[in-house]
Write a protein that binds this DNA or RNA. Sequence first.
DNA 1: AAGGGCTGCAACCGCCCTCTA
DNA 2: CTAGAGGGCGGTTGCAGCCCT
Length: 308
Amino acid sequence: MGRPPCCDQADVKKGPWTPEEDLMLGSYIQQHGPGNWKAVPATTGLMRCSKSCRLRWTNYLRPGIKRGNFTEQEERLIVHLQALFGNRWATIASYLPERTDNDVKNYWNTHLKKKLKKIQTLDREGTAGAVTAACSSLASQPALSKGRWETRVRSDIHMAKRALDEALALQDKTVGSASASASASVSAATATYASSAENISRLLQGWMENKTSSLPKTTRSSNYYSTFTGTASSSAAAAAAATGKNSLPSAMDSSSFNLDSRNLEGSSETDHLSHGDVKFPILNSLFESWLFDEEEESVEEIESLAYV
DNA sequence: AAGGGCTGCAACCGCCCTCTA
DNA sequence: CTAGAGGGCGGTTGCAGCCCT
């Protein structure tokens, strides 16, 4: 026999998440850690599908998520990785530690696709030289000959594989000295959840600001969320986050976010965090050196990098 | 000022692979 | 071994806000 049903579809609430729901979800994960999503609606009383809970956590509440505009470096990385992997957004997002696959996907569909299309059009018209610096960096890619491009793709896969191997080896070392690293892992996880609490705190701050403004807007999540995406309007919330002070409304018990490292031991989030910590700097440095190198390396140089 | 079209993005849908009983 | 749920992921949609006429 299989598993019991995930959730009762008839009772499932859909649509934008409210701050209260975010708080309930965040509180649950702070206590139990992410995973076992089936238990989330039952335990918290959230009228949400377990899938929806997981999505909300991974895309918005998860600690360390960066909101707002993509940098030029991120943009280049996405373009490069999209050429390499295709529309495998989760894979691409794994190289951008602060971005979610949904964010990357949306950014590609709404910005980069158009940008590249524009570049291609200009290229066809022989006016590619007139595009901006950002665009021209993107335009350089299609200019590669087929053979050269394939060589790059091939070498890149090897580079990525090597970086991953290094990362995993580093992680093994960390696991090897478990007793010494246990406290570090817990403190890292604690910081992770602190970041989560900040996320929710800032979210609520934005929500309250909206509520008290003279022109209250809708309760759509993007409204309260957009207030802390790095714009000037979020300065108060950012300041609160920077000082480590929650700005939770009084009706919501901020003590539910007191961080208890005992709850974090054995959590899969700890594993996730340590994995990410070692993986990304290595990959980023590799890709940075690749992406920002204006000089065209010889095929031999690429090959030598790839097969060491 | 109004309203119609466009844009950006949060969230849902559905497929597929993995895992469990 | 098998059925079926869980979880991951890419595609798509719906809607609020913005822009343009």
